[in-house]
Amino acid sequence: MSTQPGGSTPQPHAPIDKMSPAHMLSIIVGDLLGAGSLIVFANSGPVLAGLLMLVAGLALIILGAAGLGSRMSAVPAMASLNAGIRPDTDSNASYPARLEGQLDPNLTRWMWLFKWLLAIPHYIVLAFLWVAFIVVTVAAGITILFTSHYPPSLFRFNVGVMRWHWRVAFYATGVMGTDNYPPFTLARTGYPATFDVEQPAKLSRWQVLVKSWLFALPHLIIVGLLTGSVWSSTADGGTNGMSLLGLLVFITAVILLFTGVYRMGLFNLIMGINRWMYRTISYTALMSDDYPPFRLDQGPQEPPIRTAVAL
Rank of each mutant, 00 (worst) to 15 (best):
D297K: 05
T89Q: 11
V208E: 05
Y181S: 08
L48V: 14
M24T: 11
Q11F: 08
L32K: 01
I124Y: 10
N92H: 11
W213S: 12
N106R: 13
V175P: 00
L226H: 06
V197A: 10
W164N: 06
L63T: 04
L58K: 10
V261A: 08
E100P: 01
L32T: 09
W164K: 03
D196M: 10
L107M: 06
L25W: 11
G36P: 05
P192K: 08
L68T: 02
M277K: 15
K18A: 13
A253S: 14
L118H: 02
Y171N: 08
G69W: 01
A201V: 06
E198R: 06
M53Q: 12
L247P: 00
A49I: 15
T307R: 12
A56K: 05
A66M: 10
L63P: 00
Y191K: 05
P96F: 03
T173P: 00
I305M: 08
D17L: 02
V138Q: 07
F215S: 10
A193N: 03
V223C: 13
E198N: 06
S153L: 06
R98L: 07
L129H: 06
V135P: 00
I273M: 04
T89L: 12
L154E: 12
G160V: 11
L129F: 13
A74E: 14
V168D: 02
P21M: 04
V125W: 12
T108P: 00
M72G: 02
W166Y: 13
A132K: 00
P151E: 11
A140H: 04
L145C: 09
P87H: 11
T284S: 15
G64M: 00
L38D: 07
I251T: 12
V29Y: 03
S8T: 15
L154A: 12
K18S: 14
S94Y: 00
M1D: 10
S148T: 10
A97N: 04
P303E: 03
I61F: 03
T284G: 04
R86Q: 14
L209Q: 11
L107R: 11
D17Y: 07
D236H: 03
V131T: 06
Q4L: 15
S288L: 01
I134W: 11
S243N: 05
K18P: 00
L245A: 01
Q301V: 05
F215P: 00
L214S: 04
A201W: 01
L118F: 13
A172C: 06
W166P: 00
S94Q: 15
R167I: 07
T143W: 03
K202L: 14
K211G: 00
L209W: 10
L220N: 02
F146Y: 12
W213G: 09
D88H: 05
L217C: 12
L81M: 13
G84A: 13
S73F: 03
V75A: 05
I144T: 06
P218M: 08
Y278T: 05
R306Q: 08
G67T: 06
S212K: 05
T89Y: 06
A93D: 02
P10D: 09
G265I: 07
A35C: 10
T89M: 11
L248P: 03
P192W: 02
L63W: 11
L118D: 01
G57H: 07
T194I: 05
G45C: 09
D88V: 09
R275Y: 05
L186A: 02
T252W: 04
M78C: 07
H219S: 03
G237T: 14
N158I: 09
P300E: 14
